[in-house]
Structures are given as structure tokens and as C-alpha cells.
Write a protein that binds this DNA or RNA. Structure first.
Lengths: 245, 245
DNA sequence: CGACTACTTGAGCTTTTTCAATAGCTGTGG
DNA sequence: CCACAGCTATTGAAAAAGCTCAAGTAGTCG
């Protein structure tokens, strides 16, 4: 029940999260009071591909990325996580993790062991349907991403990416107009399936047209309407020759 | 338990499937004996996007495709299903389906209502972990697809697609060297995120190089080794100028 | 302060798409 | 049994989108 209500609310404020984790500690009074919360630094690994599946994590603060690795070593980022997101759902299959997870900044997570999950699921109908929902939701996200990747050009992908971030920040009570990109351009490019130079160029283009303002990691969405319009048509199509200096 | 063992085994033969569905009928002797199996014709819909989530289906025979639809009406195929595959897992989130599902040929499915699933999950630990596995597996598949879409060129994608099909047919006891493509070129192109002409050109190219033989819907993999090699390097790179007539 | 990493920008090149034309297959009806 | 319509697939040529390479700038960390 705890894991799930948390997932649905996408809470950012620590109070919610702590309440949840506190509830969890009450639930299984065994010995994981100290293990249930862990803090990690930027670039550190939460999960490595191939790791044994011990349980799932709820991101408490900070942010993280998940990626899969091909035989030739190339990596593909499959998700970015923000507070309240559940990490490690890919481990139920085969009891091993397929994805690796690294933090993008100093972050903390709350751990739920497989045993805890199992008993939660069997004792609480809400928890069960909640977990199924969470996984189902992750599937939907992936599908949306697949759709975006194969049916959109670079500009549309970047626009979609920014709007997604905006939505997620808003859901967490943060500003949806101005936020810090916790991932590098390289991460963004990888996630969106394009070259880093292309990301850079599109940022520049959007900025020149007054749709966003981007300086280093700080991003502002100046014109959400136009940004949303980018999802449909390409900028150059809509502006019939603008490119003002 | 029944749904799951079936998923893991990926059985193609009807006996296995029927046994499973029979087991299921025993389990809930209510009134769904007649509703549990349904037959559909080619192009008919099993699920439309937005449909209320009633339960999940196990494909019994035939094949199907799932796709999501963007605001502008463009569709993106997200999965192909073969006997034994579970359909409809995206519905747990929001109690509505995001994906639509259409059959590629005359097919039959076995239905498990949400109620049945719930009681199965709470009474059988195996069933629970099995369902979680199935969903987790679907996530992994999606991630693999994401990886392929953004890190491979067209040739590698087509090669991967054919090898995947081959593997899935083999798992179902069918030949992994020769099979019928139940989907159109358009479907393949859509799934792989490329133009239909590109699919056609790559098929031609692979055939000219003696790697596959393709006539209409019948496909033969003549040289699996080379096809696998296509996943790594492009054909033209490996053949240092061949293009024999 | 220097090395390093992250980011931006330009130019040529490659891949893939788009457009257009053609051919083949399927099913229907005369 | 053939002809026709409609869908499916192949092929070529031109155009576009995005990638790679290369160089340079700007923050960041020790």
C-alpha cells in the first residue's frame, strides 16, 4: 500500500516520502531499519546489469538514469527517475536486473526487499493492484517512447522530452516552467536516439525562436504553447522563413 | 499458476494451451466456460485503445499486433504476439487499455478476467511471481527494442527482427529457418521505425547476398551466421565490394 | 591555474526518406 | 475463367535529415 500510494502521488516533498518509509519500517519490524534508506553520490551505481534482484527501490530525492547495454558495449538510456519513481521493476523476470541504474546527482533511495513486496502483495489488495499499475504504467511509458522515437524527427523528440520533464516536475510540486536538467546533453542525446550535436543545435534553435531559454543546466520554458506545437509540426514548417538573428 | 507456466514455456502446440485453459476452467467454475475461448478473423480488433480493462488474454493460436496511436492518428506498432503470449498487460494502469490489438490472421484467445487474476494472485504465490515476471519481461523486451531503434541502422534492425521471429518460432516448436511472415511489410516498417521501401530494399539486399530467401510472405533464413553478423557490422562493410549479380 | 569534461558550432558526407512509377497478388463479379 | 479494383510490394532517382569529423569555447574540479 505504501509503495504504491507514493508512486501515484509522485510526491517530491520529503515529508510524504518519509511517512511512507516510516510506515514501511513499522510493517516489517525485522532488521532493515538501517538498510531501508541509502544515500548515493553522483555517478554512483544503484544497480549494475546482471545484479541479483534483491528488491525494488523508491527514489527519495535526487535523480537517476537507467540504461541497458548491448553486446558491443553501447549503452541506451531507457528512463530517467525522479523522486517517487520506482526503480528495479525489471528484476522480477529471471531474478536478475537487465538495466543498470546510476545517479545523476546526490540522491537517496528507500529499499523494499522481495520478501517485503511479496507479503505486502498477498496481504493487501491495494498494494497488489498498485504494483501491477506501476509496472503497467512503465510499459505504457516505454511504448510512448517507442512511438516518439520512430515517428518523430529530432525536434519533436526534444520538445517531447522537455514537456515530459516539465510535467513530471509539476507533478512533484516544482515549477514546470523553470528547472535544472540533471542529465548531460550526452544523456539526453542517448535517450532520444540522436547525436549530441543535434540536441545542442535544437536547443539553440528553440532558444533563438524564444520558445525556451537554456543556459548550462538551467532550462526555462518561455512559450509552452509553441513548445507543444513542436510535437505536431516542425518549427521551420510553421515559421515561413524567420531565423531572426 | 496456469497463465504463467504457459507464458514461460511459450508453447505452440495446442495441447499445452488447452490443458492450461481447462485448468483455468476448473479453477473458477463460474460461468465463463464459453467466454474463455474466442476466435477472431484477420484484421479484427481484440482491444481498442481506451477500452475498459476487463482482463488479460493469452493468445492461443494465430498472431496479433499491438499498437499505440498518437494525437495526429499515426500508429506505432509496439509488439507482435504469438501463441502463448499474454495480451493486455497495459490495462492495469488506469483500468483502461492504451494499446490497440488487431489480429494478423485467424486466431483464438483465452480470456482471464481481472477478478480471476486477482484471486489467482492472492491464492498462489507462483501465479503472482509469474505475472510479475511476465510484466517484467515485457518491460525488458521494450527496452531491448528501444536500444535497437536508436543504436542500429536499418539493416541491423531488420536482421534483429528476423532473428527475433526465428527465436520465437523455435521456442514454439516450429522451424526457425523457414516461416511465414504473418505481418505485412508496412507493419514491419512501422514496427522498426523506417520507411516500407527501406524494408523492401534490405530484404532484397539480404537475398542477393544469399543470407535469406524471401518470396511474398514466406521467409527462409539460409545463413543464420551471417544474419547474426549483421547485428554487429553492416553488410557492405563486411563484404569488401561484392554485389554479384 | 591547468587539465578535464561538457557544450557549441560549422561543413561535408551518409543514410534514409520521399516521390513516383511499376508490378504482383487477391478477391469479386460478370 | 477472365477482367478489374484495391491492396501490397519492389525499384529508381532526388531530396532531406541527421551524423561524423573537426575545431573552438566555456565551465568545473583538483
Amino acid at each position: 500500500m505504501s509503495i504504491i500510494s507514493l508512486y501515484q502521488a509522485h510526491p517530491c516533498n520529503c515529508c510524504n516520502m518519509l511517512a511512507v518509509c516510516a510506515k514501511d519500517r513499522q510493517f516489517s519490524k525485522s532488521g532493515l531499519t538501517d538498510r531501508s534508506h541509502r544515500v548515493f553520490q553522483r555517478k554512483h551505481a544503484l544497480i549494475d546489469s546482471g545484479d541479483h534482484f534483491a528488491g525494488i527501490y523508491v527514489l527519495h530525492s535526487g535523480s537517476a538514469k537507467a540504461f541497458v547495454t548491448a553486446q558491443d558495449g553501447t549503452e541506451q538510456i531507457t528512463a530517467f527517475y525522479f523522486p517517487g519513481d520506482i526503480i528495479g521493476l525489471d528484476g522480477f523476470d529471471n531474478q536478475r536486473h537487465v538495466q543498470s541504474v546510476r545517479f545523476l546527482e546526490t540522491s537517496s533511495v528507500c529499499f523494499f526487499s522481495a520478501k517485503e513486496i511479496k507479503s505486502l502483495m498477498q496481504n493487501s489488495e491495494g498494494a497488489l493492484s498498485g504494483l501491477l499499475k506501476a509496472m503497467s504504467h512503465a510499459l505504457t511509458e516505454d511504448n510512448a517512447m517507442l512511438l516518439a522515437l520512430s515517428n518523430s524527427d529530432s525536434e519533436q523528440r526534444v520538445a517531447k522530452f522537455l514537456l515530459d520533464l516539465s510535467k513530471r516536475y509539476k507533478a512533484r510540486g516544482c515549477s514546470d516552467k523553470e528547472f535544472i536538467l540533471s542529465m548531460t546533453r550526452t544523456d539526453i542525446a542517448n535517450y532520444l536516439g540522436m547525436a549530441i550535436e543535434t540536441v545542442s543545435r535544437i536547443f539553440t534553435k528553440l532558444q533563438k525562436n524564444g520558445i525556451i531559454s537554456v543556459a548550462h543546466r538551467r532550462l526555462q520554458i518561455l512559450d509552452p504553447i509553441w513548445l507543444k506545437a513542436c510535437l505536431q509540426t516542425s518549427l521551420t514548417e510553421r515559421l515561413t522563413g524567420t531565423t531572426s538573428s
